[in-house]
Design a protein around this nucleic acid. Structure first.
Lengths: 164, 164
DNA sequence: TCTGAAATGCTTGATTACAAACATTTTCCT
DNA sequence: AGGAAAATGTTTGTAATCAAGCATTTCAGA
């Protein structure tokens, strides 16, 4: 289904680049919506799952700032998500004697149990949602989005438009 | 730059489908960040610009519910964004005598002026961010994301995983 | 006609995100 | 050593999103 129909637009897009951007954004939103739906059964939000997932594949000595870099969110966001997860006893903050600024964030036993339970469902859903694409198509999608991000990053760094 | 490096992951992705999903989500997030940066100069948020933009291309008889469908957000979200825009005198809600449930949402003069001022900057940024891609590549991207959305929509509608 | 269903907009509460500012702590440079 | 700079985590304020529930209004079917 074309995005035009999905959004109920009468006229087709005049601008293919604009259409492409909206396609990317809409697709990501829809993927998020599906993820939200999946995680809800486990009483998790997407952000909370992302933290648990990152922790599972960390060496156990990850700080909040590092977690933020992995997940590409600010330290402030990490603080609030960890507060929630800690109140559910899914993670714990561990003081680090050698550096009193930082904490190490770790899964609790029940946190580990939960992420181990949800991860296969998540992976299954990922494969199902991309089940239509063969490897080469995934590769293409990755390559094209990489180039878009490259440009976007440049623009954000320059914080303006191109030098014309 | 590969997503792996962007996220500071030591190991490459094992799962190309997972990598593809994360690429899509990360790309959309970055595009949003760039948009936020652009709109900030005009004291607009992305959501607010989206409303103004949709209003510009509506026939002037659009309701809040219809606006929600166009932008794919709930009525509750529309209410809150419109409250902001109305407090800035950029839009107005107009009572409809024939149907006392609904309002028509319209741009004010200053709202129209503002969107006419920002739109070219927005379009320019869109073209710059995709400046690396030729038409055929845009077309490919659109086609692939359409297929992903198709599946995602199915999964959301079924609210479960596939029948195995 | 009349009653139940559907549609519409609003409110509330939860969650997440960011920016900016702050205190604390560590690092770095002179 | 000592002071400036950077890093870390938290707090506060703003904004957006959704779900769920509510009142009002309209629609549709019996």
């Amino acid at each position: 289904m074309k995005l035009q129909d999905e959004l109920g637009l009468q006229a087709p897009f005049q601008d293919m680049r604009h259409e492409t951007v909206l396609n990317l954004v809409r697709t990501a939103t829809l993927l998020s919506a599906r993820a939200t739906q999946l995680f809800r059964r486990s009483d998790l939000t997407e952000a909370q799952f992302n933290v648990l997932f990152a922790l599972k594949f960390s060496n156990g000595r990850i700080t909040q700032a590092e977690l933020g870099k992995r997940l590409v969110v600010t330290r402030a966001s990490i603080t609030s998500v960890l507060d929630k997860l800690e109140s559910k006893s899914l993670v714990k903050r561990v003081d680090v004697p050698e550096n009193r600024r930082i904490h190490h964030v770790e899964l609790t036993e029940s946190g580990r149990r939960l992420v181990n339970e949800v991860e296969p469902l998540y992976r299954k859903a990922v494969h199902e949602v991309l089940g239509d694409l063969v490897d080469a198509e995934c590769h293409t999608l990755i390559g094209l989005t990489e180039r878009v991000r490259e440009r976007a990053r440049d623009m954000i760094a320059r914080n303006g438009s191109q030098p014309d």
